[in-house]
Design a protein around this nucleic acid. Structure first.
Length: 801
RNA sequence: GCGAUUGUGGUGGAACGGCAUACACAACGGACUUAAAAUCCGUCGGGGAAACCUUGCGGGUUCAAAUCCCGCCAAUCGCACCA
């Protein structure tokens, strides 16, 4: 009898072995087929690993181990996204340097990852907060600056009053701060932007060339939000300037009976003298400014607004004079901040018109505009030269021609995506390598001076005046202009959270290079990332940002592929045992380390892969995890049942080979749960037989190794074989899968009545006759006419009547 | 409001249009134990004598539907007055 399965001892033993033999370092050999598997590197929080990390990493861990066994040169790296607000907030609270906190957290994370037994290539570990790394983040930033993709503008920005930082649009989704979930407010501020909108079309088109799930592509497409429409100029009565609007419905131009501009629109201040009810306007603007973005965008909210007295527009096609309003349902941040209102065919405009008593003129036939706006298609009416047309498309084209010919408007494209607000008024981030010179303007720090190091400070708290702590360090701020040599000041804001992660997959390829960010030859071999797994929450943030940077680097010839990631997948959430999202406040958080201590790392890995469909959200179930431990115990005890070599018999030969095929295919499809189920079935078969051969056992261990590497290595060693980590992945023998009988289900009128086993290759008539002769079938066909018989695969269907 | 995803036993979940409920968990029964744990063996959608019913609900296509189509309902996620 074998000893009992001491998972703790076995796991420590093999982890030490892998470390000592550097088993998982990618090879220099560029002649081998490569597999670059990437999982999102974590932010090293003080809490350590979460079971969500386990699910995110174990999938590609399994694929990486399998591919290594298949002879691929595998790059499966890990590092840390170590700049960020939580470390800084903790630093302020405890008055410890964020660097100290971050270093300790990284060690903690690394230790935990090793205890899970991950086959990461630790020789390539990186951290985004290390100068050797952020030197190149700054380098890419300067390249963006040199190519005109960095600009400064004073506009309304998303601002988190709690974190005291400006947030990008992506970081304030739903009107909440991404870090602390406070309500975001809109403030006019002067900030740096990266011109991601210049890459909107490339980001859209690039989706055609990558293997992402449709749900991810769709989310990116929606976020970018491309729309094709027209800019149209409306003349204003007694005012020399025209009011420009953006519309996707210029077919309805004859139905425009009023205009609405956003409360923040600059024309208001410009022509305040002409607005006779300025007091009323100003009061309305003040009321709007108080509302949060979230409140303002509540769709259900009743329309409000103020008519501008003395400010009248002229419909460019009908020549009619129309009133102009300000209303907060029009946003300054989209289009031109002004709209033409077509109450007959836009529900928002309809509601507004009803409330303010504005005329409603239908221009498309259909619907009942007394009840609501008609947004469907139809024949054009009340529209002069468009009256001949029937649908949107033709009338839009005709209208665009007309507008162009009369210089009233032009075709235009708009995106919902906004430029990337790229600075934080905080300490723990990459210093922005720019210098402000009174004579030369904004100048980049010379490339040879990189990295621009983050100076030490005493006090990490942001300034009350909205400035970074760096602004208080004179030795940092004051410098000379690299262009004219005169006195100058450094930019004191730092880069946002997402900067370092926007290119980290490139650094993993060549992490220690101090000449270039990545050696081109290494890059040609390893890029693109073959398979990238991560969270759905990063689709409209990190994924978009890094694709943007990569497209830019491709355009300037620094990388060899337009898209960084050939294939992207995501993991479903692990919910708490109560079925709710895990959260500290609910007290339903499962700690992976405690699972390792109770059940072992192999069980943790096995359970997380077995618990359900990989991409679906599944609640944690401790009993079920226990069942996975029980399975590994059963595998352990198989060592006492080993008898002989080769195959036990033909039946087992078929079953083992079928299992090889199924497990290999299921791993690649991320159907880990069914792969594991197939191995469980095989183990049950071994138990039913009461024995298994050495070779059958070895095959099982090879299949199991990617998921449960420790126990399989140990048992494999006990069998006397060489280690599995680079051993050949088993190949199935197709001849073993060829069956000489088929078991048919016999249906009568589509209902299963019997089963029958027949030799392969029988004539259809003989098969049907055999089915008809069955006792279970006879009662259902006797005295009836057989109208049709169908024999497909393993079904015989007899249609009688 | 728009978009995406999902709805299958007590539970997690299987199922290229082809034998629904694989594999587990829980529960129950048995064996082994003085006993318990562990282990092993069995039962396990409903209803029953059988027929029959059963993949959220209602239609449809098909020899055959959990799967495809149409209409509802519910849940989750994302976007949200985007002009």
């Amino acid at each position: 009898m074998a000893d009992i399965y001491d998972f703790n001892a076995v796991e420590r033993k093999w982890q030490a072995y892998w470390d000592a033999h550097r088993c998982f370092e990618a090879e220099k050999d560029h002649t081998k087929p490569k597999f670059y598997a990437l999982v999102e590197f974590p932010y090293p929080s003080g809490a350590g690993m979460h079971v969500g990390h386990i699910k995110a990493y174990t999938s590609l861990e399994v694929l990486s181990r399998k591919r290594r066994m298949q002879g691929y040169n595998v790059l499966f790296p890990m590092g840390f996204d170590s700049f960020g607000l939580p470390a800084e907030n903790y630093a302020i609270k405890t008055n410890t340097h964020p660097h100290v906190i971050t270093t300790a957290n990284i060690e903690h994370f690394k230790d935990q990852m090793k205890r899970v037994g991950y086959s990461f290539d630790w020789s390539r570990e990186i951290a985004t907060s290390v100068p050797d790394y952020y030197k190149w983040t700054q380098w890419i930033f300067l390249k963006l600056f040199d190519h005109g993709l960095v600009f400064r503008a004073k506009t309304l920005v998303n601002y988190c009053p709690n974190c005291k930082v400006v947030l990008s649009n992506e970081d304030s989704q739903g009107g909440k701060c991404d870090v602390c979930h406070s309500d975001v407010v809109q403030l006019p501020k002067d900030v740096w932007y990266l011109k991601i909108t210049a890459y909107a079309d490339k980001l859209l088109n690039g989706l055609n060339d990558v293997d992402y799930p449709d749900s991810i592509k769709q989310q990116e497409i929606d976020w970018i939000g491309k729309s094709v429409g027209a800019f149209v100029n409306f003349r204003l009565k007694d005012i020399p300037e025209a009011l420009e609007i953006y519309t996707t419905r210029c077919d309805t131009l004859f139905g425009v009976t009023f205009m609405v501009i956003a409360p923040e629109h600059p024309m208001l201040d410009k022509y305040r003298d002409r607005i006779q009810n300025w007091d009323e306007v100003e009061a309305y603007r003040a009321a709007c400014a108080k509302k949060t973005e979230f409140e303002r965008t509540q769709l259900s909210k009743e329309k409000t607004g103020v008519r501008l007295e003395g400010f009248t527009a002229i419909n460019p096609v009908s020549g009619r004079e129309i009133p102009v309003f300000i209303a907060d349902y029009v946003m300054m941040g989209y289009g031109t901040g002004a709209i033409m209102a077509v109450p007959a065919h836009d529900q928002r405009d309809w509601e507004f018109a009803k409330k303010f008593g504005v005329e409603i003129i239908p221009v498309i036939e259909g619907g009942d505009i007394e009840k609501e706006a008609y947004t469907g298609d139809g024949r054009m009416i009340n529209s002069d030269f468009l009256n001949a047309y029937d649908n949107k498309k033709d009338s839009i084209a005709a209208m665009l021609d007309y507008l162009g010919a009369h210089r009233l408007g032009r075709k235009g494209i708009q995106y919902k995506m906004k430029d990337w607000a790229f600075n934080r008024q905080r300490y723990w981030g990459e210093p922005i390598p720019l210098i402000h010179c009174e004579k030369c303007g904004t100048v980049g720090v010379p490339y040879e001076e990189l990295p621009l190091r983050l100076p030490d400070v005493e006090n990490f708290a942001p300034g009350t005046d909205g400035q970074s702590p760096l602004a208080r360090i004179e030795s940092f701020v004051n410098c000379t202009c690299p262009q004219c040599g005169g006195k100058a000041k450094r930019e004191t804001d730092t880069m946002p959270q997402w900067a370092g992660s926007s290119w980290y997959y490139l650094r993993f390829i060549d992490p220690h290079n101090d000449k270039v960010f990545c050696d081109p030859e290494e890059m040609r071999y390893w890029m693109p990332v073959d398979w990238y797994n991560g969270g759905m929450e990063h689709v409209t943030r990190h994924l978009l940002y890094s694709r943007f940077w990569h497209h830019f680097l491709y355009d300037i010839g620094e990388v060899n592929t337009p898209e960084p990631y050939a294939k992207r997948t995501y993991q479903g959430l692990i919910l708490g045992p109560d079925g709710d999202k895990m959260s500290k406040s609910k007290g339903n958080v499962v700690d992976p380390v405690s699972v390792i201590e109770r059940l072992g790392a192999d069980t943790l890995r096995l359970y997380v892969m077995f618990m359900g469909d990989y991409m679906a959200a599944t609640p944690w179930n401790e009993d079920s995890a226990n069942g996975c431990k029980r399975f590994l115990d059963r595998v352990w005890r198989l060592q006492d049942m080993v008898k002989g070599e080769g195959y036990t018999d033909d039946e087992m030969r078929t079953k083992v080979n079928a299992c090889i095929k199924k497990v290999g295919e299921d791993y690649e499809r991320m159907k880990f749960n069914t792969a594991i189920a197939a191995m469980m079935t095989l183990v049950n078969d071994f138990y039913a037989k009461g024995s298994l051969t050495k070779d059958e056992f070895r095959t099982l261990l090879q299949l199991l190794n990617p998921v449960a590497p420790h126990i399989s290595e140990e048992l494999n060693e006990r069998l006397g074989f060489t280690p599995l980590h680079h051993a050949a992945w088993p190949q199935f023998d197709p001849s073993a899968l060829v069956e000489n009988t088929v078991e048919y289900g016999v249906q009568v009128n589509g209902k299963v009545r019997a089963r029958i086993k027949l030799p392969v290759g029988m004539e259809q008539k003989a098969i049907v006759d055999a089915a008809l002769a069955l006792d279970d079938v006879k009662p259902f066909v006797e005295g009836k006419t057989i109208r049709k018989t169908i024999v497909v695969k393993n079904i015989i269907n007899l249609v009688v009547g």
